[in-house]
């Protein structure tokens, strides 16, 4: 049953890893602007389309 020591240590470590990732994400400003990335994400396609169009013409 002393495996529980390992299990708990592992679970706490995993939780702490996620917690630090969260803090780092906040620090990098990821949550400061929650709108623009959602729009920016959709641009890639249009750009590619435009480039191929230019090659053809």
């Amino acid at each position: 049953m002393s495996v529980i020591y390992i299990l708990i240590t592992v679970s706490i470590i995993v939780a702490i890893v996620f917690f630090t990732l969260f803090i780092r994400a906040v620090k990098s400003g990821q949550y400061d602007d929650s709108y623009t990335p959602s729009v920016r994400m959709l641009f890639e396609d249009e750009l590619v389309k435009e480039k191929t169009k230019n090659k053809q013409s």
Binding site: D32, D33, S34, Y35, T36, V39, R40
Partner: peptide, 10 residues
């Protein structure tokens, strides 16, 4: 200009 990044809400 090497990069320009928009913050839309601001």
């Amino acid at each position: 200009i090497s990069s320009s990044i928009i913050n839309f809400p601001k």
